[in-house]
């Protein structure tokens, strides 16, 4: 069963003559429990797609269907709770002068949920944080702990979909591994569907089943995890991105010692 269906989705910013079309006609489907990756350079429209799916960006055309429901420009609370966002920089996305408990309480208040204390305790346990962390402030946590809080805040409304916008790019390698493992566990335990935006193809191949390569607002290729690992992707742009996540490719070394023209 497909959890997300986007058909001829386009999104723009601005009005009238200065309107800028950022996403140009993309169509994709994500199955329940699947993780779908979006990869591309800055400004190619990855985050804008997430924004449109999350209901953050209302200037979109085409059709979006989430969990069997067709989504309009205006959504109900229940529709909004179904998908939640996790952002790149955990320090910038958590209120610096609210305790973690207060931050986690906010979505519950907005959505009028009951059993609030119980839910906060459950979600902290789910993301592997001690319960007394609810009395701490963000600056008292490390980067990895803060990203766990951001994931907890997204999970507290019991969404079916997590929209992950570069969730590990601001973290060190060792912390990134912890968060990626946590995301894998949560996906299995809570049967979540993910859309992961990243520029690191190794991270994408680790977590995603399928991945769409984006260039200036459109998809150039949708590759499976298998294709990435076997290096059988077709589009030239995908190959550039793949080489990039392996590290630096010296042109000089490729030319077998011949110096480059200066």
């Amino acid at each position: 069963m497909s959890m997300i269906k986007a058909h001829h989705l386009a999104a723009s910013y601005g009005h009238g003559d200065t309107a800028l079309k950022v996403v140009k006609d993309v169509s994709f489907e994500v199955q329940k429990g699947e993780t779908f990756g979006l990869v591309g350079e800055s400004g190619c429209g990855k985050s804008t797609i997430l924004g449109a799916l999350a209901g953050r960006n209302k200037q979109w055309t085409g059709s979006i269907e989430i969990d069997g429901e067709t989504i309009g420009q205006k959504r109900t609370r229940a529709q909004l709770a179904k998908q939640q966002l996790v952002f790149q920089d955990p320090f910038g996305s958590i209120h610096p002068r609210h305790t973690i408990g207060r931050t986690l309480l906010e979505p519950l208040e907005i959505h009028g949920k009951d059993r609030r204390q119980e839910r906060i305790e459950k979600v902290l346990t789910d993301v592997g944080l001690p319960l007394n962390f609810r009395y701490r402030y963000p600056h008292q946590l490390s980067g990895g702990q803060r990203q766990r809080v951001a994931i907890a805040r997204a999970l507290i409304l019991e969404p079916k979909i997590l929209l992950l916008d570069e969730p590990t790019s601001a973290l060190d390698v060792s912390i990134q591994a912890e968060i990626l493992n946590l995301l894998k566990d949560l996906r299995q335990r809570e049967q979540l569907t993910y859309i992961l935006v990243s520029h690191d193809l190794a991270v994408v191949a680790h977590l995603c089943d399928r991945v769409a390569m984006m260039q200036s607002g459109g998809f150039v290729e949708i590759a499976t995890r298998q294709q990435l690992l076997e290096n059988t992707v077709e589009h030239a742009y995908t190959r550039i991105l793949m080489d990039g996540s392996r590290g630096y490719v010296s042109e000089r070394r490729n030319n077998k010692g011949e110096a480059l023209p200066v």
Binding site: L180, A202, A205, H206
Partner: peptide, 20 residues
């Protein structure tokens, strides 16, 4: 070694990453 093992890799995929 811990850092190397914590890195997701396209060439040597693994199901779970080692935590340092």
């Amino acid at each position: 070694r811990g850092l190397l093992n914590a890195l997701p890799s396209l060439d040597h995929p693994k199901d779970r990453l080692e935590v340092l």
